[in-house]
């Protein structure tokens, strides 16, 4: 199991039914509630891994959730380095996961 939105019918704070918002993540549609962050929509779609790291290729996802750690960086509509936790999802947002490989070691680097 994974992250999920509390169904509004079960929510003790008695919300109104949320309007849907649909984005794509690497081309795959994901639907969340209007007003959610991209991070929230992606998490609730069952994806914890937002990117792979440059050195070890390790999976990373949301960590701090408040814009401090920059671990949830994604490309949004061609803009790189967007913190998914800080950007609200808009219908049609095309999210592409980022993976920035390190430059190859220079041939002359003896050290």
């Amino acid at each position: 199991m994974t992250s999920r939105i509390l169904p509004f019918q079960n929510d003790p704070i008695k919300p109104t039914a949320p309007a849907p918002v649909t984005i794509t993540v690497d081309g795959v549609p994901a639907t969340g509630a209007m007003g959610q962050s991209l991070a929230g929509v992606i998490l609730a779609s069952g994806t914890l891994r937002f990117r792979r790291t440059s050195v070890h290729g390790a999976p990373r996802g949301v960590f701090c959730g408040i814009g401090v750690c920059y671990d949830c960086l994604v490309e949004v509509n061609g803009q790189r380095d967007v913190r998914a936790c800080q950007r609200r999802a808009r219908d049609g947002d095309a999210v592409v996961t980022q993976h920035d490989e390190l430059p190859a070691a220079p041939a002359g680097d003896a050290a």
Binding site: M1, R4, I5, I13, A33, L43
Partner: peptide, 8 residues
């Protein structure tokens, strides 16, 4: 902010 639980 979203009524999202990070895990079960």
């Amino acid at each position: 902010g979203e009524r999202l639980a990070v895990g079960q």
